[in-house]
């Protein structure tokens, strides 16, 4: 019912160079991407960034259509911010007649830029989770955050929380689906009525969902303790992260590309 529209956070098995790269490389480059996308402004650099994302998607082997599907849930936010921008930005109106005099050329351009930026960030962000297993992802985050342990940041605990959260997204979605079906079979109706009625109709779903989430948390805690889990200190890993040739190649190519773009933009 619902789990077909939420794609972010899902891992799609594959064997591309992007799948094989170290999670730290991918996380750092994704952050770099987010910074660069807010630094570029001109039409050509935007096009280059979009092509860059498209190329990465193609190399990763994830179907392009599938990555676009991840945009659906945030379409509302994109359109909403775009509309606000169109009407609130000062500048030259596109016409002097009434509805159009509130719309400025500057507003339209700003709105377009913002929409493209948000869309590209979502696509590149979901590509990160499409090509990295949740365990590798949190291992990478833990490694990247570990220098901050010196100032009291609980890196291991944060990473463990994240990996548990990520691990349970599909489980809880499945559970929601199951409970919704069970209640629908008993005559529950989630699709009609006004906003308040609809919100109320989710009580029969949310209560069992919370009950089962607590039950699962309990079971997981017991299972972890039964295997002598005692937090991060002194813990070793079955597979330790290592940078390889692939990481060097990806990092160098991306670095040259980003620097080139920024030079073009600001020189």
């Amino acid at each position: 019912m619902i789990n077909t529209s939420i794609t972010i956070g899902q891992y799609i098995p594959g064997d591309s160079i992007i799948h094989r790269a170290d999670p730290r490389t991918k996380i750092l480059l994704s952050i770099a991407f987010m910074v660069v996308i807010f630094l570029v402004n001109s039409f050509w650099t935007f096009t280059a960034m979009a092509l860059f994302v498209l190329l990465t998607v193609i190399i990763s082997g994830v179907p392009v259509k599938y990555t676009l599907r991840g945009l659906k849930p945030i379409m509302f936010i994109i359109i909403f911010t775009a509309v606000i921008n169109i009407f609130t930005t000062g500048g030259t109106p596109i016409s002097q007649t009434v509805p159009f005099k509130y719309i400025t050329w500057e507003g339209i351009i700003l709105a377009l830029r913002l929409a493209i930026r948000l869309a590209l960030i979502i696509i590149s962000g979901s590509l990160l989770t499409f090509t990295t297993t949740p365990i590798l992802l949190t291992d990478g985050i833990e490694k990247l955050l570990s220098p901050f342990r010196k100032i009291g940041l609980p890196a291991h605990e944060l990473a463990m929380m994240m990996s548990i959260a990520l691990r349970f997204i599909p489980t809880l979605l499945e559970e929601t689906d199951k409970i919704m079906k069970a209640q629908a079979a008993r005559g529950a109706d989630f699709d009609t009525g006004n906003l308040i009625q609809r919100a109320k109709s989710f009580v029969p779903v949310l209560v069992p969902l919370f009950v089962s989430a607590f039950r699962r948390a309990d079971e997981l805690a017991t299972a972890m303790e039964a295997r002598c889990y005692r937090g991060g200190t002194g813990r070793t890993r079955l597979r330790s992260l290592e940078f390889t040739d692939a990481d060097v190649r990806i990092a160098v190519v991306t670095f040259i590309f980003f620097t080139g773009l920024l030079l073009l933009e600001y020189l």
Partner: peptide
């Protein structure tokens, strides 16, 4: 859905009301 009643696996996980009476009355 009234004519065809489905009891799913582990149906006790779908209980949610304050009392048994209210839960049975849901349908």
């Amino acid at each position: 859905r009234r004519l065809v009643g489905i009891v799913f696996q582990y149906p006790e996980h779908q209980l949610f009301e304050e009392t048994v009476y209210k839960d049975i009355a849901f349908g």
